[in-house]
Design a protein around this nucleic acid. Structure first.
Lengths: 354, 354
DNA sequence: CTGAAAGCGCTAACAG
DNA sequence: CTGTTAGCGCTTTCAG
């Protein structure tokens, strides 16, 4: 028998009973009062260490654990946080969630997950379900829609702190962990220019909101510094829908004949590759390409894809750490404070001249 | 102003108050009793529709929503389910979670997420935190470790139904939604044979547990039917760790000189591609490759990767639908019942002879 | 250090 | 259809 199986069998053995048992039953099984038993499960020093030990042992034996809802009703906390993200589609969010889940569990917290599909109305509805005590805090990457985010005030009124990661709202004063997008966009664009690109297109899913805007600014600055014209026709504001953005990108390439593309999100780069293939354009010869992406197999693509790789996992960790700082009173909530984490620029064949 | 912003502003306007208000206060504000108010928030027909409307309106005005913990304590239901998965690494799980989240939210449920890192001990610990009423049901893809899963009895004792997807435990009697892995493995292997492969290696992360075993059986059957020998040295049981499986695969290729590889999980195929590159082996000429994967850009890899693509999203949807069938009493829990969903076989350059 | 007692906010008989 | 009432299981004063 494997060691691990032995452990698992012992594990379940300690808990073999149903836990429909309540604190009162446990108390009477020990000849104590329920208050004493209760104290054993809190960090209460008004209890004899030996009594506490005895209680915990018996609890394990009988499979007792304090009813979650009774304790929470009595005014303590939910030990739960929520993650709200716009989508599940890419490695960036998977990695970030992994980091968030890890920090949360290390702190004994549970994690609820919500997906907005980039839809601000859904986002607002989700927020609404969180303010009745369900969660102690929220980690969010904004849907990117809408200019007014007053609905986040609901959280504030209910004293539920929120920390943004990646996509934040500029009108909401709170902590935020994001990438050094301006700089990396500048560098990515500069790199394209150094590889002889003259007509560089910028693709975004929403060029007016946080990441879409900032990444565009880095792009524009690089063009400006290289004395290249900024041509609005080369700036495409398209959709998350693969079908739609494929068509938009196709139009852009056919009409504007860019010689390079800087995609602010991974999905748009993937569509670009498909469009290029369909139009018989070779990357990088006919069209250079670089994009924001956390894909770990970018080097296996044909051609190897140049990427701006954000530290997604780290971003999740830091955002959650900050949330716990606020929850534990080590730090004040509701204060605008942005932490920028450096992305890694990986230049490969897709953006490099022959 | 955008239509959506208008909506969002109206939305928050209806909820501008903090919700520290209780059912009693709302009741007295309306000159009603708290039971009547309570009824307005349940699906109770013992209430005048007009009264109900009046209550809901006032509630909205005052920003009242029923305290989660009080209702749950009273009704002992949490409106929450848990997803437990071994990892976040690939598209398969992202897609499945997306499906699960969607069904859950459509039913007004919340979703907790837990990652086991393929570790059965963590899995057991997580289960332990779920049986105090925190969740009404569990959707899980097993860690794949351990042969004894007695700890899942905890759920049974506490009447928390569980539905497996993808990776199930054969010793746990419950509903399960998985792929038709035997058949697709058979077909995938047969396809390699038809493309002149003679020494086909099989890679798994755990060949003794559900998916690892069944996929291997399909592979063996195909070899057998083609009168090819089954050589245990061509069957590799390796780790999830990229560093370790890279080394294992390298050894296998160097020592056994397979002419084709069938990888039962995506990660092992990726390592194979890297090993092949390092050893200067060309895919498919020197080594053919096919694997289980939900990668949506398999066709963009160099060479385009042949895959067995499981219906991950659909799997999430069906597993969750079944869970709700059990929760709503439309179906009995604790009964072994496996639903097999067809995978799609996509043959591309990586597995095809010149 | 331990126990008794008073609710937390809500739901569901039960009685009108 | 509406109100009264008795808890759900736990935490936390307040006395001993």
């Amino acid at each position: 028998m494997h060691k691990i199986d032995l452990f698992l069998i012992m594990f379940v053995h300690s808990f073999i009973m149903a836990s429909n048992i309540t604190i009162v039953e446990l108390a009477s099984a020990l000849g104590l009062s329920k208050s004493t038993v209760s104290r054993a499960f809190r960090d209460n020093q008004d209890i004899n260490p030996r009594t506490k030990e005895r209680i915990l042992e018996k609890a394990k034996e009988l499979g007792f654990s304090p009813n979650l809802y009774a304790s929470n009703l009595r005014g303590s906390k939910s030990q739960t946080i929520a993650i709200i993200i716009p989508e599940f589609g890419n490695k960036f969010f998977s990695q970030a969630i992994k980091g968030i889940e890890w920090v949360a569990r290390s702190n004994g917290y549970h994690v609820l997950i919500y997906v907005t599909d980039h839809n601000a109305v859904k986002e607002a509805e989700i927020i609404q379900t969180l303010v009745n005590g369900r969660v102690d805090g929220v980690i969010m990457s904004g849907s990117g829609e809408g200019n007014s985010h007053e609905y986040l005030k609901l959280l504030e009124y209910n004293k539920v702190p929120i920390v943004f990661f990646d996509r934040y709202y500029e009108d909401v004063p709170t902590a935020c962990v994001t990438g050094n997008d301006f700089d990396s966009s500048y560098e990515a664009t500069k790199h394209l220019i150094e590889n002889d690109a003259k007509r560089i297109a910028y693709l975004a899913v929403n060029k007016d909101v946080s990441i879409g805007r900032i990444r565009m600014e880095g792009y524009k600055k690089a063009l400006h510094d290289a004395a290249l014209p900024i041509d609005d026709r080369l700036i495409l504001d398209t959709s998350n829908e693969a079908v739609i953005n494929y068509e938009d990108i196709r139009e852009l390439i056919l009409n504007e004949k860019p010689d390079a593309i800087f995609a602010s999100v991974e999905r748009l780069a993937m569509s670009t590759i498909r469009v290029a293939k369909a139009l018989n354009l070779t990357i990088p010869n006919d069209l250079k390409l670089i994009c924001f992406s956390c894909l770990d197999i970018a080097d296996m693509l044909q051609p190897a894809l140049s990427v701006v790789k954000q530290p997604a996992y780290e971003m999740g960790i830091q955002a959650t750490t900050q949330l716990f700082d606020i929850l534990c009173g080590r730090k004040q909530g509701g204060v605008r404070e942005i932490v920028f984490l450096d992305s890694e620029l990986i230049f490969q064949a897709s953006s490099t001249k022959a």
